[in-house]
């Protein structure tokens, strides 16, 4: 299967007919689970990641800031082949630490003394780019649960097909592992929060390309997320006048 093909009017298309910098369809849903403090489902194409937040109390007289616990889980039915052994997977442990380290510094934990915020992130379907989808789902869940954050966190995945920079890889494109680049961006400060590059040797010039296209696509994803949040707030606007 060709990775890239050229159309008659000389615009290059990818495997599923997308242009190089085109994102798949994004769907964000907030308040997906009733018993939790906050929850969100983030879908991009076929990749679905759901995040649940539970704000709990600690009995012990702790520090004067809250604690964030993250539990990241790639379900064994999420990939094409069913995976039986998940508990020993060191990849998931590594990624939980990544999520935790970023959000620990973005959430204003000083406002939640003696509390514990438990985040459960589940990848329901992994069709490429589940790492950035996880960051987005957590960000939405925190906003849904009313947890104060310094900034709006958005993430995106980019890659290289040959020498060409593309946005939002699907599973087949990711598998070749020419390059998978995850970037987490803070919208207000316009700064980068997290970078992860998984590749088989790329040139520095290609890397600069990747950075610039990722930052642009973060803006697009941020807009989608914001419209979803606004829609939810407007839908429930009457509840602001209940009291």
């Amino acid at each position: 299967m060709l990775e890239l093909r050229h159309d008659n009017d000389q615009s290059t298309l990818r495997m599923n007919g997308r242009k190089l910098l085109e994102l798949r369809d994004i769907k964000c849903q907030l308040d997906v689970m009733k018993n939790t403090s906050g929850s969100a489902l983030f879908e991009i194409g076929n990749t679905k990641v759901v995040a649940f937040l539970q704000a709990q109390t600690l009995g012990v007289n702790q520090l004067n800031r809250g604690i964030l616990n993250v539990n990241f889980f790639v379900t064994n039915f999420s990939a094409i082949e069913h995976r039986a052994d998940i508990k020993k997977d060191i990849k998931m442990k590594e990624f939980t630490r990544m999520i935790k380290s970023v959000f620990e510094q973005v959430i204003l934990l000083d406002l939640y003394p003696r509390s514990q915020l438990d985040l459960q992130v589940f990848v329901l379907e992994a069709d490429g780019g589940y790492r950035s989808a996880a960051f987005n789902a957590v960000s939405l869940a925190l906003m849904d649960g009313g947890i104060a954050m310094k900034d709006f966190v958005v993430a995106t995945t980019a890659g290289l097909l040959g020498n060409v920079g593309v946005i939002d890889l699907i599973y087949q494109e990711e598998k070749k592992q020419n390059c998978e680049f995850v970037l987490v961006h803070l919208q207000k400060a316009q700064k980068i929060a997290y970078v992860n590059l998984n590749c088989n040797k790329i040139r520095l010039s290609d890397f600069e390309k990747l950075m610039s296209i990722s930052v642009d696509s973060c803006d697009k994803i941020a807009n989608e997320m914001k419209t979803a949040i606004r829609a939810k707030l407007v839908k429930n606007i009457n509840s602001f006048y209940f009291k």
Binding site: A148, K150, F152, K188, M225, K226, L233, V234
Partner: peptide, 9 residues
């Protein structure tokens, strides 16, 4: 106004 985290108020 509807705002998201990081918006200038």
């Amino acid at each position: 106004r509807i705002v998201v985290p990081g918006d200038y108020v």
